[in-house]
Structures are given as C-alpha cells and as structure tokens.
Simulated assay, not measured.
Amino acid sequence: MIDKTKPVHNYLTDKEIAPILKLSRKQFVDSLKKDYKIVNDQIQTALKHINESDDYAKIIWRVQQDNLHDKQFFDTEYLVRGITNLKMFYSLEVIDGKNLHSLSKTLDVFWHAHQNFSFDYMNFCDKVFGPNQFLHHLPTDKRDRSIQEAMERRYTYTQAIMDKVYSVDKTFWGKDIIICCSYWSPIPEGFIFWKPALIAMEPPCNIYADRVLNEELKKNTNFVLDGFSSMKRGI
C-alpha cells in the first residue's frame, strides 16, 4: 500500500538544488533566439532579475512537497526545464506586457508554487515589473465554453509570441496540453502594462503576415487577440 505521506524519492537538499538553479540560469540565456535583440535597458534589467531571483530554490522544494508521488518532480533535468520555462512565462510580461497570456497546466504547477510564498512573490513582482505592478492569477472557468475558447485563443497567441523569442520546450508549451490559468485585472493600476518588445526589440517581432495588422499591434498598448477589451492608449 502506498504511503501518501512519503515522496517517491528523497527531497532535494539546498546543496543539490544549487546546480539546478545554475543550469537554469544558463539555459534561460541560451534559449533566447538570436534573431532579435532586446534594446530597452529597463527590459534587460527586468530579465536579469527574472533569471537571477533567489525564489526558485523555494519553488523547487514546494513543487516536490505538493507532488509527492510524481517522479518527474524529483528529476533534476525536469526541474531545470520547469524553472526555465517559468522564467520565460514571466519574461513575456516584460517583452510583450501589453497582452494577456495563458499557460499550460504543466507549467502552472510551478507558478502556483511561487504564489504560495506570497511575500516573496509580491517582492518579485515589485522588483521585476515595477512598484505596484502585480502579476495576477485567474483560474479558467471551464463551465463556460466561451471563456474556455477565449483562453484557447489566448494560449495560441502566447505560443506564437513565445516561439518568436525563445526556443520553445513542447513539454511545457505543447498544443495538446490542457490550459489551466491566466490572469486579468479590470484596471491598469496594479497590473502589468509595459511597452511590448514589438517596440523594444530589433528587428520588430512581426507575428502576423498582414503588415497593416502588425502596425496596429505596435500602436496599441493593450492589443488582445481573444476579443477582450482593447484599450487604445498612446505609447
């Protein structure tokens, strides 16, 4: 009989977690495609904070304790990739921060683990996104098919922009992965509103074949693919 109070493997010690964090830092830098260059100093600083945060060690032992009988959370390679892809998700809110993004249930486990440390997570958002800029979380209400379809469109958009910037790990960003969560806020205050990398990257990151649509995307500060409100503000 399985003892549900014990993990399938031993929890990693701080000493064992350290090389995972080191490898993830390198993996995150290496995964950035060379086609585009980040030219905004504020964005470069934010990405550095994302990559070098001290929070990830806690995230690792938290996902292990929340998933006692799932062997992959005791596999060092999987943990490296999970942390790296969490960093990629956070970086989208800097690189493409005017848009709403979705992530997979696979990666959501790591995001939830970070949110569990509420003070650390709040300080992380403050340091990465700026004062009073908080990356909110909203579970998808799967009782409403229209909402689910909107999340699917949002996730498709997230995959598209992710693939433009990074070498995508299909384990965490696959098409057949159940979409779990997104985030939302009705007002700009306390939410992420950055100039997107469509402005801050060279050459411009054109997602769509339609040149006019791309130009409109660059002009709008909150262009949302899935039909939610598009607030046109000058940038």
Score class of each variant (00 low, 15 high):
229 S>K: 14
226 D>R: 07
228 F>N: 13
221 T>M: 11
233 R>K: 06
234 G>N: 11
216 E>H: 09
231 M>Y: 11
233 R>M: 14
207 I>W: 02
224 V>H: 09
231 M>D: 12
234 G>C: 06
206 N>Q: 14
212 V>I: 15
208 Y>E: 12
201 M>R: 00
221 T>D: 09
223 F>S: 02
223 F>D: 01
208 Y>D: 12
216 E>N: 14
223 F>K: 01
223 F>G: 02
219 K>V: 01
232 K>R: 13
209 A>E: 15
227 G>W: 07
222 N>E: 14
212 V>G: 07
216 E>A: 05
229 S>D: 14
215 E>R: 08
211 R>P: 09
210 D>A: 06
207 I>N: 02
201 M>D: 00
204 P>I: 01
220 N>D: 08
225 L>T: 11
232 K>Y: 07
226 D>L: 06
224 V>G: 02
231 M>A: 12
205 C>V: 12
213 L>I: 11
212 V>D: 15
206 N>D: 13
206 N>P: 03
230 S>M: 13
234 G>K: 11
208 Y>N: 08
219 K>Y: 05
200 A>S: 08
208 Y>H: 10
234 G>L: 09
227 G>V: 04
219 K>H: 03
223 F>E: 00
207 I>S: 00
225 L>N: 10
227 G>E: 08
233 R>S: 10
208 Y>K: 08
214 N>G: 09
212 V>Q: 15
221 T>C: 12
207 I>T: 04
222 N>V: 05
213 L>R: 14
211 R>S: 14
211 R>K: 15
223 F>A: 05
206 N>C: 08
201 M>P: 00
231 M>I: 15
205 C>L: 10
223 F>T: 01
234 G>A: 07
226 D>V: 04
209 A>W: 08
210 D>G: 09
201 M>A: 03
207 I>Q: 03
227 G>M: 06
229 S>F: 09
207 I>E: 03
227 G>P: 06
228 F>C: 08
205 C>D: 00
217 L>W: 03
209 A>V: 05
209 A>L: 12
223 F>N: 01
229 S>H: 10
203 P>I: 02
211 R>Y: 04
211 R>M: 12
224 V>C: 07
231 M>K: 11
228 F>V: 13
220 N>Y: 06
215 E>K: 10
221 T>R: 07
227 G>A: 13
201 M>N: 00
220 N>L: 07
207 I>Y: 04
232 K>F: 09
218 K>E: 02
231 M>F: 14
231 M>N: 08
223 F>W: 13
223 F>Q: 02
210 D>N: 15
227 G>H: 11
228 F>W: 12
214 N>Q: 08
202 E>L: 04
206 N>L: 09
210 D>R: 07
226 D>W: 05
205 C>F: 02
212 V>H: 10
213 L>S: 07
210 D>Q: 06
217 L>S: 04
233 R>H: 05
228 F>S: 15
200 A>P: 00
214 N>P: 09
232 K>M: 05
209 A>G: 15
218 K>T: 01
227 G>F: 05
205 C>M: 13
211 R>Q: 12
220 N>R: 07
225 L>W: 05
224 V>W: 04
219 K>T: 02
